[in-house]
Design a protein around this nucleic acid. Structure first.
Length: 420
DNA sequence: TCTGGGGTCCTAGGACCC
DNA sequence: TCTGGGGTCCTAGGACCC
């Protein structure tokens, strides 16, 4: 539910961001790692400490590339349950000051402290208390930005890093923004940054000076207008306290595999199993199924279908996904190598499963007599869900256990999931 | 920098309708 | 037989976020 932000006069929007979160947790757990260049992960760097970043090591980089940049880099496998626990605990500290908290990810949240001054003092005092408590109670550094809008608060927290606090006093916003590079803005990534740079626009001040028509021509109407507004310190975004995901998906990087159904089918099964069990756990089903393939040249293609009724059963998802995959393979016959398969379900219906799953299964069984469908399938899902509830997610599954050479630990997947 | 995983939002084109 | 203009839905692709 959208909540009105501050009225605009005082700076009461906070953005709090744990510094190099996974790496900081590792250095907290193992004092021998403190002050050293460390990377969480192995084949791919999931997170890097500041000491590693000074050598150019970044998240998403291959382990080999990271080691080349920083030979003394220490790799640690990752304590994912601890990341979840400590991330939750840090957000809980924010919630002690205001119920108006919007969590963005495991390690980052906005908080609106308008109206809490009588209890906790001005926003800057609240931010200091948050930083002090997270440091004292959890042992972690956290940076906080304070401003009159989400956009400004987020930029302020980035400027504050590492382990700092930056307040942008009301009335000084444009002067604060002007010298900063456009890449700090929400919505400016590598592509937009390069386009702006080629047009001679390097700082947010340059952006604020640019003609709106020019930005529209450069970036398109929506993106042009959005950036012009943000550069002029007009941020329309409000705090949203109960954000729910609009889709649920899973994907798997494969290294390089032949573009053949027999190779990809077991992967698709596991993805359908992951997504289906997540949906069923929340009593949700989805009417749109999307399959994504990435080829040897890293070009990605998708194919999707909108169904007449929402689905959540693993085998239903797997079969629909297989049809979509076959279509993609047929359309791209020339491609010999697949590097990633993804499956996503959207058009979610939060009340559909119990009513619709059964009739849908029966219909499916009627259509293809003799196949294990309908009731049999639903009870198979139910049995697997029950086993997992008691013994954990990996206790049972479809296909062979993944002797995965590529891709990330399952624990990491869970951290990135948004609440359904 | 040869590139993991889970998401959101915007654009463009075609189908279809009035 | 040939034709306008606009709205809406669906799908595919891509940029971006953490």
């Amino acid at each position: 539910m959208p909540v009105a932000a501050n009225a605009g006069q005082s700076a009461t929007m906070l953005h709090a961001d744990l510094d190099a979160f996974y790496a900081s947790v590792e250095q907290l757990l193992d004092p021998a790692l403190r002050g050293r260049a460390i990377a969480v992960g192995g084949g791919v760097v999931l997170a890097a400490s500041y000491e590693a970043r000074m050598h150019g090591v970044r998240g998403g980089m291959s382990g080999r590339a990271a080691r080349a940049l920083c030979p003394e880099l220490v790799f640690v496998p990752g304590n994912f349950a601890e990341y979840q626990r400590l991330g939750d605990a840090a957000i809980a500290v924010l919630s002690d000051f205001t119920p108006l908290v919007e969590r963005i990810s495991i390690d980052e949240a906005f908080a609106d402290v308008s109206g809490t001054e009588a209890l906790f003092g001005p926003a800057e005092r609240v931010a200091e208390q948050i930083r002090q408590r997270v440091r004292a109670e959890l042992g972690l550094p956290i940076s906080v930005g304070i401003a009159t809008s989400k956009h400004l608060a987020k930029i302020a927290s980035q400027v504050a890093k590492p382990d700092g606090l930056v307040l942008v006093p009301p009335g000084t916003e444009l002067a604060f923004l002007a010298p900063l590079p456009v890449g700090l803005m929400w919505g400016v990534g590598p592509v937009t940054g390069a386009e702006l740079s080629a047009a001679g626009i390097a700082t947010i001040g340059d952006l604020a000076q640019a003609e709106p028509e020019r930005l529209r021509a450069l970036l398109g109407v929506a993106a042009g207008d959005k950036l012009a507004a943000l550069a002029a310190n007009r941020d329309p975004r409000r705090l949203v306290t109960d954000r729910r995901a609009g889709s649920a998906g899973a994907q798997s990087a494969l290294g390089r595999q032949p573009a053949e159904l027999e190779v990809l089918r077991p992967v698709l099964r596991r993805l359908a199993d992951r997504v289906g069990s997540r949906l069923r756990h929340k009593g949700i089903a989805g009417a749109r199924v999307t399959v994504r393939l990435r080829f040897g040249d890293f070009r990605a293609v998708t194919r999707a279908i909108t169904l007449g009724a929402p689905v959540a059963a693993t085998m239903m998802l797997a079969e629909i996904a297989e049809e979509l995959l076959l279509g993609l393979l047929a359309e791209h016959r020339a491609e010999r190598v697949v590097t990633l398969v993804g499956l996503s379900v959207s058009e979610l219906d939060r009340h559909a499963v119990l009513q619709l799953e059964l009739p849908l299964g029966l219909e499916d069984e009627a259509r293809r007599p003799g196949t294990p469908g309908g009731l049999a399938r639903r009870s198979a899902d139910g049995a697997m869900d029950a086993v997992r509830a008691r013994f954990g997610r990996s206790a049972i599954g479809y296909g062979a256990p993944d002797g995965r050479l590529h891709g990330v630990p399952d624990g990491f997947r869970g951290l990135a999931e948004k609440p359904l």
